[in-house]
Every structure is written in C-alpha cells, then in structure tokens.
Computed example of a mutant assay.
Amino acid sequence: MEGEAIGAARCAVPAFPGSRAPDRTRTVNADGIRIAVHEWGEPDATPILLVHGALDFARTFDAFAPLLADGGYRVVSYDQRGHGDSEHADLYSWVADERDLLAVADSVTREPLIAIGHSKGGSLLVHAIQALPHRFTRFVAIDGLPFRNPHADSAVREKKSMTAPIITRWLDTRRQSTSLQRKPGTLEELAQRRARMNPRLSLAWLRYLASLGARQDADGWRWKLDPVIGASGFGPMRARWMTDRLPGFPIPMLAIFGTEREPMGWDATAADLAPYFPPTTQVHVMRDTGHFIHIEQPRATADLILRLLRS
C-alpha cells in the first residue's frame, strides 16, 4: 500500500520556535490517489492518527505533533487529497475523504488506535468512528465538532437540495478544472492572505506555513491546494449527521473548544453541544483562544491530551 517517499521541500523553511519537521515521510495509495503521510516519534511507539482541517495540510501540526511524539507516541498525519503534497483528484467528497483516512490508518496498524482531529478532521473522525468503532480507542476533537447554527445549516440545505443553478456551477467548475490556478504571489503575500483567514496567528507562523504549503511556479508562489477545492469543496456535510449520533458515541472523547470566533471556525461552543454529549465525554474550553487551538497553545493542548491518554 505504501508508495515512494516524498521529495524535499522546494524552498528554504524559516525557523519557527518549537516547530519540528517530521521524522519520516512516505505515501499511501488510497484507491489510486497518492496520499502524503508524515510521522513524528519512534516507529514502534503507540500510534496516534492526527487529521487536519479543510484547506490545511499535515505540516500545520509541526509545533504540536512533536510534543505528542516527545510524550512517547508515534504521531501520524497526512495531507488530505488535493491538499499539500497529496495528489489531486477528479472528485472530492466527504466519503472519499473518510476512505483516505481509513487507508492511512490501515497503513499504520490494524489494531485500534487513538485519533485526534482539528476542524473538518474532527468531523471526519466522528463519522469514521461511528461507522467502525472497533478501529479506534480514544478520540480528541480540537474544535472539530460543527453545530447546526442557522447560517451553516441554510448554506448546506441549499447545496444539498441540488438545484439546477448549483449543479450547473459545479459542472462548470469541474469542466474548467484543468485550467484553474490559484492566484500567484510572493511567500509574504501568501502569508498575508492567510492572515485574513487566521487573524489570531502570528505572521511568523504564517510565513512558516507558506514556506511549507506553497510551491514555486514561473509566475510566483501558490498554495499546494487544488483550486477546485473551495470552502465547501469537500462535499455536502450537515451538522445533524453528527449531533444526532453523538449521544451514542461509542468511545471516550475529549472535546476542546476555543472562545474566540474566526473566519475559518465552526462557531460551535461547548454550551451548544453539551446536550448531545454522552456522559463519557470530557469537555475543555481554552479561554482567549480561537479556532486553531493547537497552534495558538500547542503546549497546553498537548499536555491536556497527554494527561487524558495516561489516565
């Protein structure tokens, strides 16, 4: 199932305090799509599967994953299809992303494993764990649980209805996909663009991300993200798919929430989801923290998770 190792980065990566490149890189073949996999920690240590959010990539965990690895774990993350160093696909869907997740998990172990997901990665894991609870032992959602707020639900309802204009726009985008390109710029410009989506993250961190998550073309730098993928390019997803099943969630869960709203966040609070959690759920709120909890507070987040895993 594993393919060739991934090549080196295409530009010099600036230093960022606490960040550490993966100890190993490899690929997994997920139904014909090459998925880039990154690992921190000893290869024979207890594995943790780490799943990133939408429009992100595995190296966004560079300051967080090493802390878990130093705690004695083998931390495995991967670039979702169309993201980072993974291959682009003809189609993107929630179910395809879940199949890729399971392909990576299978490449690590066929025994039950620990899973941590941020944002969309948390929601993917909710569905995967509900479908295959025997494959997982404990789950941590880092602001990874959407809620049925009116704005999100109305947008998803419209998309799910598959009206003629929606289908036409989708087909037109697919038809143009071979010629679509993301806007080029310097690495500094890419970092500044990302700052509009992540206003709480420092420019030093965003420059670090741009140096890892972008490629250099003849006319400038572009994020290594399929231009077909937009804010909802991974397919329809309704919050009710999760909340209706949460009361019977099959394994212990730690749900971590921030308190500050951000453009890329779910806007879901611990209070919103409290009625849906089973008694086994532990809830922790990080004060004065936004959607990217593990980037704003990597040490506090890692320590919280390590205490859970050692209990």
Rank of each mutant, 00 (worst) to 15 (best):
R207N: 15
K159E: 10
G290H: 07
R99G: 10
R307F: 01
S123G: 07
W205K: 09
R287D: 05
R24H: 08
D288K: 06
R238S: 02
G233K: 00
P17Q: 09
R81M: 04
K159D: 10
F257T: 14
P17M: 04
A30M: 10
L68C: 12
D143L: 09
M286P: 03
A271V: 14
R194G: 00
A231S: 03
A214T: 15
D226E: 03
S77F: 04
D62L: 12
L273H: 11
H83N: 12
K159M: 10
M1H: 13
W223M: 11
P150I: 03
A69D: 12
S119G: 07
E189V: 13
T186F: 12
T46R: 07
G185N: 11
M162W: 06
S179L: 05
Y78M: 08
P14S: 01
P236D: 05
S119A: 11
W94P: 07
Q80A: 07
V51D: 05
V75S: 03
Q181P: 01
P252A: 06
H38V: 04
L212M: 15
A9I: 05
L225M: 08
Q176L: 12
W40R: 14
G121E: 06
D219V: 13
I129D: 03
D70A: 13
P43S: 09
P66Y: 08
E42I: 11
Q297I: 05
I116A: 04
D272H: 15
L91N: 06
S107C: 14
A58G: 13
R196N: 00
L306Y: 06
N149W: 05
A270N: 11
L206G: 10
P227D: 00
A152E: 09
S177L: 04
M286W: 09
D62Y: 05
W241G: 04
G121R: 12
L125R: 10
A58D: 08
H83G: 04
M286G: 02
W221S: 03
E111H: 05
F136E: 00
V95C: 01
Y78V: 09
A45I: 15
W223D: 04
D56H: 13
P279Y: 01
I166C: 04
T243Y: 08
A204Q: 12
W205E: 02
T168G: 11
A115H: 13
R200F: 04
P275F: 11
G233V: 01
L308A: 03
S179K: 03
I6V: 15
F136D: 00
L101Q: 13
L49S: 11
I6K: 10
V51T: 15
I166E: 06
A270D: 07
V156Q: 13
D70F: 07
S119L: 06
A191N: 12
R200L: 11
I229C: 00
F292K: 05
R138A: 02
R245M: 09
A268V: 14
I293V: 15
L113N: 03
S77L: 08
H294P: 03
M264E: 01
V76I: 11
T109Q: 06
A89E: 03
